[in-house]
Amino acid sequence: MVSVLVRALILVAAGAVAGLVGNAVRPDRVALLGFTTPTTCEGAEAGVREVSVTEGQALCGTPGLVFADARSAESYARGHVAGAVHLPCDAKGRGAVDAIAQLDEGTTVLVYGDSTEAARAVADSLARRSRRPVLLLQGGFPAWDSGGGACASGACEACGTGDGGHAHDTGTAP
């Protein structure tokens, strides 16, 4: 039994060491010391700030700020905020996090969806995991569109590269 106990301890120690080493080398490592503990329930405190359409329009074109579309690819193709990158959202939001990770450090991300609430989960997830300032557009794209915000339509040229390459679209609302 002693040898089994020793082996069990070795197993636990080996796993723990592998985990620590793995964490040290991965880019999305966990901060072991000083880990912040926001939860989804505390999305507002996690760094997501809601902005109105008017405020969003004033921010449009600001260097270091990117609009991010959290709706479906079809909705995006029909019309989106000019310059917005489309977030490829999978079940766990990893696609969105990966897409945002390719933007420049310190870029503020303004997320919008079909409504405020529709994009909140994505915004919370980005705020928790991308460590960038995240804004959430009140009312989502419908509010932006009816408020006369600048729109573009068509496939997302920057998708997959995340370089915001069509950030100067000047298309018209669909």
Partner: peptide, 19 residues
């Protein structure tokens, strides 16, 4: 408790995989 959460998050998955 929050202090040990990141440590557990890092150590536990490889222990599960090995086991």
């Amino acid at each position: 408790g929050d202090v040990w959460a990141p440590w557990a998050a890092v150590a536990l998955p490889p222990i599960e995989l090995l086991t």
